[in-house]
């Protein structure tokens, strides 16, 4: 590449950078964020800070969960890296309104829970961190009742330590 062409190339890059910056800090994205930023005020602080599976289910949904074989969990039985464990939950239970994922031996059991409105299929795939070999519990709210399924994951390298 000749020196002159290189200059032109650099100039072009600079221009693109400035344009990108203007866009990033400008009014347009800000307006979009203000209009659509989700509301985190309902986030259940207490449920996310409760250790133990049963206590957490009680805190989150206010009821006990019974075992169900209609919940399908797809996750590795041995996870080499506890920082990224893919977990997929699917169920044939009717009228599902919520799905929660709990990791029994994490400092706080609740990892995530999902609101499933009408028209959305009772399916979710997510990646979780787990500290050590542990049970992963999926809770499904169907017809207002809680059901759960459990599967063990063997973790060879923990995902919560430093």
């Amino acid at each position: 590449m000749t020196d002159q062409r290189r200059r032109g190339f650099l100039k072009g890059m600079l221009g693109a950078g400035v344009a990108g910056f203007a866009l990033g800090s400008g009014i347009v994205p800000l307006r979009v964020e203000a209009a659509t930023a989700p509301d985190a005020s309902d986030w259940p602080d207490k449920a996310f800070k409760t250790p133990g599976v049963d206590d957490t289910i009680a805190e989150l949904y206010g009821m006990e969960a019974s075992e169900s074989d209609k919940i399908t969990m797809d996750l590795p039985t041995i996870a080499q890296n506890g920082a990224v464990v893919p977990v997929t939950v699917e169920t044939s239970l009717p009228n599902v309104t919520g799905i929660a994922l709990l990791v029994a031996k994490n400092p706080n059991a609740l990892a995530a829970y999902f609101d499933v409105p009408e028209g959305t299929l009772p399916f979710v795939s997510n990646r979780l961190k787990m500290a050590e070999t542990t049970d992963v519990v999926a809770v499904v709210i169907s017809d207002g009742k809680a059901y759960k399924a459990t599967q063990n994951v063997k973790v060879t390298v923990g995902g919560c330590g430093g």
Binding site: T88, V103, L110, F123
Partner: peptide
Amino acid sequence: AHKGKNVFVANWGPAVSKDPFLECRFE
């Protein structure tokens, strides 16, 4: 959200992996 209506809401805690991935299905 689809047409102003939430079709899926994920409430995440700190136990969700870095650079989180999510898959869901809706009608």
